[in-house]
Nucleic acid binder design. Structure first.
Length: 260
DNA sequence: CTCGACTCCTGTTAGC
DNA sequence: TGCTAACAGGAGTCGA
């Protein structure tokens, strides 16, 4: 599913949608419009206008118009960004392998004939005009040791739940978090504020390294743990049968042997 | 503050 | 073969 890494790909592919005049806006799926956003409003703000900048905070893609309005796009679990009919990601975990144009929930047509659209089978994503970004934590690519230390120290929640809380760090999803904790040899259920200085340093190192490495490899699903994240799967480090449980309401796989 | 349970949504798949 | 039910997990709400 799109986590921060996938949305970073979307941001990069959205760059070629900048500086192109928008001719037509199609926002018929009203369920897909979030907050106070209305279809007519999007049309009024976007018609005959251009995007001048593309930004990303965590899993949120932000497209700024020349007049300072911002279109915020969330992809949920199964959303893809298509620019001129092409997606930067072919194989999205947990999404459909098919690619049905009927799943376009929001789309724009440029005066040059190109398009930008969000193709989301499950409609868990959404479009919001001028979304509030003030509550999002530091981005997963930017977070530093001090920020990580603070957010862990201030909570009794399980580490995994804390790391997936977008108000704390923006961009980590279920797969990335499992991978990072597995690499860090930390039990996802450990209380956030129980980590020692050494464990926190280890977590920061693996968080940074995992995000960069999986970005190079091609997505959140390219982690070393991923292929073994199924019932009865074995830890690729030591061969132990992985534990499957719920942490923070999410299916979690961890190794009883080396994660503690 | 933190939790589980529930909600949204629908394609895919396991199981009968 | 065909059906149903469970599952996936991002994000929000609600009551305990």
């Amino acid at each position: 599913m799109p986590e921060g890494i996938e949305v970073e790909y979307y941001r990069i592919s959205s760059i070629c949608a900048l500086q192109r005049k928008i001719r037509r806006i199609t926002a018929k799926d009203l369920y897909f419009l979030k907050g106070e956003t209305q279809s007519e409003q999007l049309i009024a703000v976007l018609k005959e206008k251009k995007f001048v900048e593309s930004r990303r905070i965590g899993k949120l893609l932000l497209l700024d118009t020349e007049h300072g309005e911002t279109v915020g796009i969330r992809f949920g679990m199964t959303g893809r960004l298509l620019v001129d009919g092409k997606s930067s990601i072919d194989n999205l975990e947990y999404s459909s392998a098919r690619n049905n144009p009927e799943w376009d929930r929001f789309s724009l047509e440029f005066t040059d004939g190109g398009t930008l659209s969000i193709r989301d089978p499950r409609r868990l994503g959404g479009v919001e005009l001028n979304p509030d970004t003030s509550l999002l934590g530091p981005d997963l690519y930017e977070i530093n040791g001090m920020q990580l230390g603070t957010l862990l120290k201030e909570s009794y929640r399980p580490i995994k739940a804390r790391l997936m809380d977008q108000h704390q760090i923006a961009g980590l999803g279920n797969l990335l978090t499992d991978e990072i904790l597995w690499r860090s040899s930390l039990d996802p259920r450990r209380s956030s504020n129980s980590l020692t200085q050494i464990e926190k340093r280890r977590l920061l190192y693996h968080l940074k390294r995992t995000v960069l490495q999986l970005t190079e490899r091609g997505g959140s699903h390219t982690g070393n743990l991923q292929d073994h994240r199924l019932r009865g799967g074995r830890c690729p480090k030591d061969g132990a049968i992985l534990e499957r449980h719920k942490v923070g309401g999410r299916t979690t796989y961890s190794c009883p042997e080396h994660q503690s």
